Computed example of a mutant assay.
Amino acid sequence: MRIPKMRYFFPLGLFFTLFLDGALSNAFSKQMFTLSFSIESRIFILWLVMCVCFTDLNRPYLWAICVGLVFDLYYTGIIGPFTMIVPLIVYLTKTMYSFFKPSFIVVLLIYLIDITLVTFLFYLINAMIGFTNSSMADFISMTLGPTLAYNLAVFVVLYIPVQRFIETFSR
């Protein structure tokens, strides 16, 4: 019996895209973080959603907890928010995807819902613990909108290459 290579590429890709998000945010910080808007790169969510949709993953919740914990330790310094949010995203993606036929639009909409949920839940958690003092209207206009636009563009550019990669190594 042959073991699919995605068993190994999924966690590697997950951690690679997590650190790619940080590298892009650092490299383009003057363009992504201004006084009028803030863009959060979420390429690791793209990788997660695409892998959940196009392959049968081995222990996706364990890897989601691990990457959430790494995100919390590396980027925020608070253990908990992403450790809980990322497995929730895996569960919701699996649930939503089970109702639809695979297509570009379906995966795009699931991805946008996941990005919205991740960004909104992270904002709520930060508001509850006092790490942010911006209003909901400011959050939507200055962070959520630009984040969705950026991640939509990234999705359109990366959809075909990532899908082909996953399909090639899932066999």
Rank of each mutant, 00 (worst) to 15 (best):
I3L: 07
P4R: 03
F9V: 06
F10Q: 03
F10W: 03
F10A: 06
L12Y: 02
L12H: 03
G13E: 02
L14C: 08
F15V: 09
F15S: 01
F16N: 03
T17W: 15
F19G: 04
F19W: 14
F19S: 10
D21V: 04
D21I: 04
G22R: 03
G22M: 06
A23F: 15
F28P: 03
F28N: 04
S29I: 13
K30E: 15
Q31E: 15
T34D: 01
L35Y: 14
F37Y: 15
F37S: 05
I39Y: 06
I39C: 08
I43G: 07
W47P: 01
L48P: 07
L48V: 10
M50P: 02
V52W: 01
C53D: 01
C53I: 01
C53W: 05
C53L: 09
F54L: 14
F54N: 09
T55Q: 10
T55R: 11
D56Y: 05
L57C: 00
L57A: 01
Y61T: 06
L62G: 10
W63A: 00
C66H: 11
V67N: 06
V70Q: 13
V70L: 12
D72R: 08
Y74F: 15
Y75P: 07
Y75R: 11
I78S: 12
M84F: 15
I85L: 01
V86I: 13
V86Q: 01
L88W: 08
L88K: 07
V90T: 07
Y91R: 06
L92P: 11
T93M: 00
T95R: 11
M96D: 10
Y97A: 09
F99P: 04
K101I: 02
K101W: 07
P102R: 02
S103V: 09
F104P: 09
I105M: 13
V106C: 04
V107T: 12
V107R: 05
I110T: 05
Y111A: 02
L112R: 09
L112P: 08
D114N: 13
I115H: 08
I115E: 02
L117T: 10
V118N: 14
V118A: 12
T119D: 08
T119E: 14
F120S: 13
F120T: 15
F122V: 03
F122Y: 13
I125K: 09
I125A: 12
T132Q: 01
T132G: 04
T132R: 00
T132M: 00
N133S: 11
S135Y: 07
D138S: 11
F139E: 05
I140T: 13
I140Q: 08
T143N: 08
G145C: 10
P146H: 10
L148Y: 00
A149S: 09
Y150V: 05
V156R: 06
V156P: 02
V156H: 05
L158Q: 01
Y159G: 04
Y159M: 05
Y159C: 06
I160K: 14
V162E: 08
R164T: 07
F169R: 04
S170P: 02
S170G: 00
